[in-house]
Amino acid sequence: MSDGRHAIAISDATVEINGHRIWNDVSVTVEPGEFVAVLGSNGAGKSTLLKVVLGLVPLRSGTATVCGRAPGEANADIGYLPQRRTFDESSRIRGVDVVRLGLDGSRWGVPLPRFGRDTSRARVDEVIELVGATEYARRPIGSLSGGEQQRLLIAQALVRKPRLLMLDEPLDSLDLPNQAGVAGLIQRICRDENVAVLLVAHDVNPILSYLDRVIYFAGHTAVSGSPREVITTETLSRLYGTEIEVIETRDGRLVVVGQPEAPFVHGHRHDHAH
C-alpha cells in the first residue's frame, strides 16, 4: 500500500451531514512532518476534514486512509485539539492532570501511585517542558490565561507521541503575541518531533511563514498547494465562483477581499456562536 507513506490520503470524497452535501469530490493528502493549514469560510467543511480523519463522520463515497489505515483505526496516532471554550475559573483541576488524561485517560481503573521510576509521569513532565508550561502546569487550569491553557492542551494532544496533530482553530481566542507564540511552538514541534500538523485557521497570517501547504475549502470542494499558489486572486475567484481579490500588505500579510465572509481580515473575525 503506497498510502502508508501519507499521513492522510483522501480521494474523491463526498460527505453529507443530515442530508446536506458538505463535500463534493474532495481530494486531500498530507505527508508526514508537513505543516498544513486548513482554510475557508465557516461551514465550508474545514472541521468536517478533522471529523472524517477521526472516523467520526463517514464518507458517502470516495476513499480515505489515515497513517495507512481506515479512519477511526489510527486515532491512537492522532493528537486532537478540538475547537473549544476555555476552562473557566471554576475548573478545579490542574494542568498536569489534564495532560495526564491525554496519556492514560481512556484506560479503565484508577491511577495507582508508582514507586521508583514512573515513566508515565516522566513523559507528562517531558511534554509539559516541551511546550514551555512547566512553571504553571501544577496550578488549577481555570486560573491560567488563554495562551497558557492552549499550551497545556497542546501538551495533552502530544503526550502519546502522535504522528499527526490536528488543531481546530487553536489561535482563535488568543491575543496577537500569544498567537505568535503558540504558532511558533506548533511549528517547532512539527519540525523537531516530525509530526504532521493539520491546523484549521480563521486567519492565515500568524502561521503564514511556517506553512508548507494550505488546503482551502469553498464551494463544497477544496484546493491545496503552497500558500502563494492557493491564496491568489485567480485561484480563490475560481474556487468561490465570484470575484475575489487577494492583497499582500507591505509586511507580507495576505488580505482577502470580496468573498462571502472575510476570514483573513484582522478585526473582522466572526463570533461563531453555536
Binding site: 478540538p82 476552562f87 489534564v98 485517560g105 484506560r107 484508577v110 494532544a157
Partner: peptide, 16 residues
C-alpha cells in the same frame, strides 16, 4: 479515569 476524562474533555475523550 475514563469518567474524569469524559467529564472535563468530552470531545477529546470521544475521539480517543
Amino acid at each position: 479515569r475514563p469518567l474524569v476524562f469524559a467529564s472535563i474533555d468530552t470531545e477529546v475523550a470521544r475521539a480517543r
